[in-house]
Amino acid sequence: MRGILFDGEGAVVVDELGTTDLEPDQVRVRIGAAGVCHSDVSVINGTFGQMFSPPFVMGHEGAGQVVAVGSDVTTVEAGDHVVIATIDNCGRCSVCATGHPTLCQTSKLGAAIAKRNETGEEPGPGDLPAYFTYQGEAIMGFANTGVFAEEVVVGQGQVVAIDKRVPFTSACLIGCGVLTGTGAIFNRAQVYRGDSVAVIGVGGIGLNVIQAARIAGATKIVAVDNNPAKEGFARQFGATHFVDSGQAPSVETVREITGGGVDCSVECVGNTSLMMDAVEMLRPGGSMVILGVAGMDAVMELAPFKLYQNKSIMGCRYGSARPAFDIPALVDLYLDGRLLLDELVSATYDLAELDKAFDDLEAGKLARGVLDLS
């Protein structure tokens, strides 16, 4: 089957991919569409370090149709349309049992991440799941998925059945960008009606932060970006104000707009200087959420007194998502007309056009680009 490999130098389309046989708790999915996320760029340029050793199948934001299930699978069946989550979780440990599956360290991927965080050592062969085959060898899919391929094998905890009225080209975005952006507001910051929110970076993640803030009832939503062309996207998704940070001092402007600072700021770029700006934008008692992924060696220096007025800095992995709950809720919001998904899809591409999708992404032309595999 076709798919896109990162071979250590670049992304290449290959025809000789296969998948491993299904284990009892696994699901095989025929991919209908896959979103092109900036994390797919980051894994090539080294932002994520060497955690995913080439060759591996790229892509992590996908939706499709179940074609087969393992003998122990009870949550989906053949024919179901599903969104694929990047996280797998055991469902039994203390963090899973208390509704925090993104923190699970019992699954194979979770254990590998925990090992790297504790020791600084990159995972070795056998530490990460490998459900693809290529030239006689088992290889990984990026972020536990690898959805830039015609079919994938994933754990049943990674697939959530959705209403078939949602097009795959829209549904695939839920798997990362939508879950991450909306989760930062709904799950992590828990924005309340009447709150004010600043969103730094109006890409695919930032737009979902913006629309989640709108749905949550925030009354002032300030989008900040150095590309003035992003203003239209930002306002379409719910921003009440837009700050062109290339022309105006963002911290001072946000404070002026909000009368002293915001209740919540979300940094969606992965730039430590912008993270510091996000802290400076807070009112007393406000919370800053880090969504952008900085380089592995990046350091943010902060004077402790900046936080003395009950300000908080919060990390947020994958929107602190609970996929089995959050994905159906987001689909309901979409079907009710409150969550914009179709509007996120700026362009669709063939697998062979990934380089063009990357170029358009870097040029700021897209809310989200999508590879159509249907």
Rank of each mutant, 00 (worst) to 15 (best):
A78W: 03
C90Y: 14
G99T: 11
R92Y: 05
G64N: 12
M58W: 00
A78N: 04
P55H: 01
K115D: 01
T106G: 04
Q105G: 15
F56N: 08
A68V: 03
T75G: 12
E77Q: 15
V57H: 06
V95N: 11
P125H: 10
D127E: 13
G70T: 07
A78Q: 08
E118H: 08
V82H: 13
G70Q: 04
G120I: 14
G79R: 13
V76H: 10
F56K: 08
K115F: 04
G110M: 04
G120K: 13
V95T: 14
A68N: 06
G126V: 14
A97C: 01
F52I: 01
G59N: 01
E122G: 12
V82K: 08
T102K: 04
M58F: 00
V66G: 07
D88G: 13
T106I: 11
I84V: 15
A111V: 01
A78Y: 07
G70W: 09
G99L: 02
T86H: 10
G110T: 12
E77C: 12
D80G: 02
E118P: 07
N117G: 15
S71P: 04
H81N: 12
I84C: 12
G70Y: 01
I84R: 11
G110H: 07
A85P: 00
E118T: 14
A68I: 09
V76T: 02
T119I: 09
G124W: 00
A85F: 00
S107C: 15
A68W: 08
H81A: 11
P101Q: 07
T86P: 07
A97Y: 01
K108D: 05
S94M: 12
N89D: 13
D80S: 13
V83M: 10
S107G: 06
G79P: 03
E118C: 01
H100L: 12
D88C: 03
G62C: 08
V73D: 03
L109M: 14
S107K: 02
K115S: 11
C90F: 12
S107E: 00
V66F: 02
